[in-house]
Design a protein around this nucleic acid. Structure first.
Length: 264
DNA sequence: ATGGTAGCGTAGCTA
């Protein structure tokens, strides 16, 4: 089973690139974030034509929005809301084998890493706290589950281009990293990508648009993740971060797809 | 310390 996750920053504008990914990598399941479209306007036809007939989307006007496209049928689907908001950041579905997949778009958190003066950062921290409480209260680590998405946090030192220079930059501050790590530990989630790429090796999934030459400066961050619960860890066979997609023309996303293969 | 780009939707917010 091949699982992919990609923040595409508008599914309508990026539709040709999403189709390119499906054609070239043939994931069984593709989780999208920042679809930026209401459900009635979601471009389902192009995906159905490619065999992705099972589509679970949850979108809103202009902002956020998540979707799961699948060639495999869903036994059930759901959406979850956090922080008393209806902002379309979390969908889940049950895949064959009883595997529950969670597709998340965690709040970016704004610019100032202080919850006292920045409501967006306070929202991000609360979102993490609520998830940290919900998962162990509602799910067992013995259940086969996959958690993917744009978590908007680069937890490891080699997940950013400069650990020292980003300690005060939202996405890599100690308080966020600690909360994400607490969430990860709560169900013994395994970082599927780091299973195959040593922690000592630089690895990024996002490069800012605000750079003259993203590839030359290479100031990236690993914001997009795939985690699995312990029952699925032995099934992991490989992973891929599709760095070249950052240069796909026209109009690349600032995030690239992350793919994980499981022998199931 | 600042500004740089992108998408939505057509001003200004979000990233």
């Amino acid at each position: 089973m091949r699982i992919a996750t990609w923040n595409i920053n508008s599914v309508r504008l990026r539709l040709p690139l999403v189709c390119k990914l499906l054609d070239e990598q043939a994931p069984d399941v593709l989780c999208l974030q920042e679809t930026k479209v209401v459900d009635d306007s979601f471009p389902t036809a192009e995906f159905r034509d490619r065999g992705y007939t099972h589509i679970h989307m949850h979108g809103m006007k202009s902002y956020n929005g998540v979707a799961i496209l699948s060639r495999l049928p869903f036994a059930s689907v759901d959406v979850k809301h956090w922080c008393e908001k209806q902002d379309c950041r979390h969908v889940l579905a049950t895949l064959p084998g009883g595997i529950e997949i969670h597709n998340l778009y965690i709040p970016a958190g704004g610019d100032v890493p202080d919850p006292a003066v920045n409501d967006k950062f306070a929202h991000k921290l609360r979102f993490l706290d609520e998830m940290r409480a919900w998962f162990p209260a509602n799910r067992s680590k013995d259940r086969p589950m996959i958690l993917v998405g744009d978590l908007n946090i680069a937890p490891l030192e080699q997940d950013v281009w400069s650990h020292r220079q980003l300690l005060d930059v939202v996405s890599h501050t100690p308080v966020e990293v600690e909360k994400l790590t607490a969430l990860q530990r709560s169900l013994d989630w395994v970082d599927a990508v780091r299973r195959f790429v040593p922690d000592s090796e630089k690895l990024y999934t996002w490069w800012s648009y605000r750079s003259a030459d993203w590839a030359a400066s290479d100031r990236g961050r690993r914001l997009d993740h795939v985690w699995v619960t312990p029952p699925l860890a032995p099934a992991l066979t490989g992973t891929r971060v599709l760095r070249e997609a950052r240069g796909w023309e026209p109009k690349p996303s600032d995030h690239v797809p992350v793919l994980v293969d499981l022998a199931l």
